[in-house]
């Protein structure tokens, strides 16, 4: 716990503000670059069809209670019978998504582009910050923290006597990187915020497995307990009317 450090105003004018502005501008640039690079490939008809079937089955499951039991049973058989139901995936025909990816180079290419558009600007910015602004205190967070945060906030300064709430410029970069996400979702719209998470999902899962979601939907449809809502609706209407009248 040393006494307060006096920071040069030049640090504010030439490090703190430029760094934040550059981070925001790079975020915007990245958004537009990835938008330009996104190849609008024609989606595979089979995949679209499977997705639509899943959506239809989900709608049926959600609205099951609004149709008579007979109609519901007919629809369920249409979706999930074992011979030619729409949700039924024959064994062995389920395609491995990894194999699918290798057979289709476009998919891998697209994913690589997406990853590159994320990694390259980050690496460049980090190198820029490291080269110009390394090794001094740039900011101070307005609340006290424990010693554990030292490695997080004073990345690049090896002094154990400086108070933990002083932030080195490299760590200010990291704070910006994580904290500006909210601002980006405000100025660039929802698309940007979801894009990152989707990218994460794609990186971990390598696309989604259509046959798996089909069979999951089939199981869900099979265990639906049907209970027709219409007989009770008279009582419900009666209650509403009574409340209106009374």
């Amino acid at each position: 716990m040393a006494e307060d450090l006096v920071l040069d105003t030049a640090i504010r004018d030439w490090v703190l503000i430029p760094l934040s502005v550059v981070m925001v501008l790079i975020g915007i640039l990245r958004y537009f670059v990835s938008k330009l690079m996104r190849s609008n490939q024609v989606p595979d008809a089979k995949i679209v069809k499977e997705g639509q079937v899943v959506i239809r089955a989900r709608n049926l499951r959600a609205a099951a209670n609004f149709i008579p039991f007979k109609s519901f049973r007919a629809r369920r058989v249409y979706f999930s019978n074992e011979e030619n139901g729409l949700l039924f995936v024959p064994k062995g025909q389920a395609q491995n998504p990894q194999a699918q990816m290798f057979s289709d180079p476009n998919m891998a290419m697209d994913m690589m582009k997406k990853n590159l558009s994320m990694i390259i600007p980050q690496t460049l910015t980090f190198a820029w910050v490291n080269f110009f602004f390394s090794g001094f205190v740039a900011a101070k967070i307005p609340f006290p923290l424990t010693q554990r945060f030292r490695s997080m906030l004073q990345n690049g300064i090896d002094l154990s006597t400086v108070d933990v709430s002083y932030v080195s410029s490299r760590s200010w970069y990291f704070l910006n990187l994580f904290g500006l996400r909210g601002l980006f979702s405000l100025i660039l719209g929802e698309e940007n915020a979801t894009d990152d998470t989707q990218r994460m999902m794609q990186m971990s899962g390598f696309g989604f497995d259509a046959s798996k979601s089909l069979s999951a939907e089939k199981d869900g449809l099979d265990i639906v307990q049907h209970e027709w809502a219409l007989p009770k609706f008279e009582q419900r209407a009666e209650a509403v009317l009574r409340r209106l009248v009374g």
């Binding site: 503000i17 967070i141 307005p142 932030v167 704070l175 904290g179």
Partner: peptide
């Protein structure tokens, strides 16, 4: 926290 720190520092 980010904007608090930013404005406070400036």
């Amino acid at each position: 926290v980010l904007f608090w720190t930013f404005a406070y520092d400036i």
